[in-house]
Design a protein around this nucleic acid. Structure first.
Length: 201
DNA sequence: CGCCCGATCTGCT
DNA sequence: GCAGATCGGGCGG
């Protein structure tokens, strides 16, 4: 066990941190049931100056307030009324940066992930995409604002064979509304991995 | 208080 | 390729 420490999440360069999260292992233990996957796709959301961020312009509400906490907490919210999306809050207190986890390669508890997804045959879309992976990992709003060094949801160091995977950067997905920030290449993924939500762009 | 729409996924065409 | 699902947040009145 090599859980990432509190200090890892205090980095205030959210793009650097989004890249560093690739290859690391996300775990949840829900009702005693362990599931885990390797992070293969992330997106950086750069706080108050990023038009695609929920904290753009300093917006501070019941939903977004956790983004302003110290790095190392979860930010889970409901999107389109259906999907829960999981983010890692980063940077020191008052700097509302976050990294959206968009793709995961299943590692542990795959049978349970399939059951949660209602799948009888394992296919890459089990955890390709932020809504899909949250469902597979059992992540919902009850896991919002959790300490990522705790016992319910946490991230561990990458296995050695994942530290040299090739990384690609491209525009973020589904943020056309962010106007001149929509094309910033703040999405990162492992080249060729099956569990990346969209292979191109 | 009411209206609009979203960091998406699925299934049908 | 595209519409529908589904509901809470955010903002204007």
């Amino acid at each position: 066990m090599s859980k990432l420490p509190f200090s890892f999440y205090q980095n205030d360069d959210v793009n650097d941190l989004a890249v560093q999260l690739l290859g690391k292992r996300l775990f949840t233990r829900i009702d005693g049931q362990l599931t885990a996957g390797i992070i293969v796709e992330t997106e950086a959301y750069k706080g108050v100056e990023d038009k695609a961020s929920h904290a753009y312009g300093g917006r501070y509400t019941d939903r977004t307030k956790v983004m302003y906490e110290n790095g190392g907490l979860s930010y889970v919210y409901l999107c389109y009324g259906i999907h829960h999306l999981f983010n890692v809050v980063t940077a020191p207190k008052e700097t509302p940066h976050a990294v959206l986890i968009r793709g995961l390669e299943p590692l542990t508890g795959v049978d349970l992930m399939m059951e949660r997804r209602g799948m009888s045959v394992l296919k890459p879309n089990i955890t390709a995409g932020p809504g899909a992976l949250a469902k597979a990992m059992g992540i919902d709003r009850l896991l919002n604002a959790k300490d990522l060094t705790g016992e319910e949801i946490w991230i561990e160091e990458a296995a050695s064979d994942w530290q040299s995977a090739e990384i690609v950067a491209g525009p973020r997905i589904g943020v056309d509304y962010a106007a001149d920030h929509a094309l910033l290449p703040w999405r990162y993924y492992l080249k060729g991995n099956k569990y990346v939500s969209k292979p191109n762009s």
